[in-house]
């Protein structure tokens, strides 16, 4: 499966930054694009939830939550033992890799729709569910007697960060409003791919601008940022088989397992684990894992899953 045209905008942004070409969006616009994507994905999932929601969703949601909680448990010992990182940094990065990236999910959606591969339309519900458990597991892994935890502030960041709030909020609104949501769709539906392309253009620029930080953190983090997504994708594929997802759903869950958060988890971790090296986790998830998934991972997972499940 070749690189999707929307994902190619990521390359354009990355090349522009490499050649120091002056493409720079206003910071406010980048944040607006993030909000747009969260609401668009949430609304679409909410409408589908109203149409296709059933009792089987409870079992699927349970497995999805378990899947999200399991990923950091695999990442943590690797970071601690092989990476030689301290407990707090290992737990923080592990939480990033257990949670998900909404942009990576959006790229996978674009690829599925461009190739007319059907998937469970209520999938955004799973995205929202996957945002949270890894943060809780990460905090448990990091817990020690010397580090105090501001529980109120931490819970606020876990459940009310921008990603979780907008995704869950628009999911509920889409589910509740049903057909009424159609009047929003000329904006949140038709413009989705254009906005995603703009967003990826800026992401390519941001990810490339952080490449120099890899020198500081060493090559271990680059290797981890590539191997962990492959493992996450494999685990995601197995979880998808357990809950009997379609080919498209399996590709989406593999992609979510492979992705690492760089919006919701950094916000929560900066409050809950202020001593953790947040730049290290964001460099790993944004500079290594995100480009890997967009340029190599998603086409690879899609091809493999289609070949083996067809």
């Amino acid at each position: 499966m070749q690189l999707d045209v929307v994902a190619a905008f990521f390359l354009l942004g990355a090349l522009a930054q490499l050649f120091k070409a002056p493409i720079k969006m206003p910071k406010g616009l980048y944040q607006s694009l993030t909000i747009f994507l969260l609401i668009a994905i949430g609304l679409k999932g909410g409408i589908a939830l109203g149409q296709y929601g059933n009792l089987e969703l409870l079992w699927q949601s349970f497995v999805i939550i378990l899947f999200g909680a399991t990923l950091p448990l695999f990442a943590f010992p690797v970071l601690l033992k092989f990476g030689g990182l301290n407990r707090t940094d290992s737990a923080s990065i592990a939480a990033h890799y257990g949670s998900v990236s909404i942009a990576t999910f959006a790229v996978a959606l674009a690829v599925l729709e461009a190739n007319e591969i059907s998937y469970e339309p209520y999938f955004p519900l799973f995205v929202a569910l996957l945002e949270i458990p890894a943060i809780a597991v990460g905090l448990l892994l990091a817990s020690n007697k010397n580090q105090s935890l501001d529980l109120k502030k931490t819970l606020h960041e876990i459940f009310l960060n921008q990603g979780v709030l907008l995704l869950t909020g628009s999911l509920i609104l889409g589910w509740w409003a049903g057909d009424q949501t159609q009047k929003l769709m000329p904006f949140f539906g038709n413009l989705f791919y254009g906005v995603l392309a703009l967003f990826l253009l800026e992401m390519g620029r941001i990810a490339t601008s952080r490449i120099n930080l890899l020198k500081e953190y060493g090559s271990f983090i680059a290797s981890f940022g590539v191997v962990m997504p492959l493992f996450g994708a494999l685990l995601g594929t197995l979880a998808a088989q357990l809950i009997d997802l379609t080919v498209g759903g399996t590709i989406l869950l593999a992609t979510l397992g492979a992705s690492a958060s760089y919006i919701a988890v950094p916000a929560a971790m900066s409050v809950a684990l202020p001593k953790a090296n947040h730049s290290l986790s964001i460099t790993s998830s944004l500079t290594v894992t995100f480009p890997f998934n967009v340029l190599v991972g998603i086409p690879l997972y899609s091809t493999l899953i289609i070949s083996f499940m067809a």
């Binding site: 690797v78 092989f82 990476g83 030689g84 090559s219 271990f220 290797s223 981890f224 191997v227």
Partner: peptide, 10 residues
Amino acid sequence: NALLFELFSI
């Protein structure tokens, strides 16, 4: 250990 992991990854 980091070198081992990197070699394994490659």
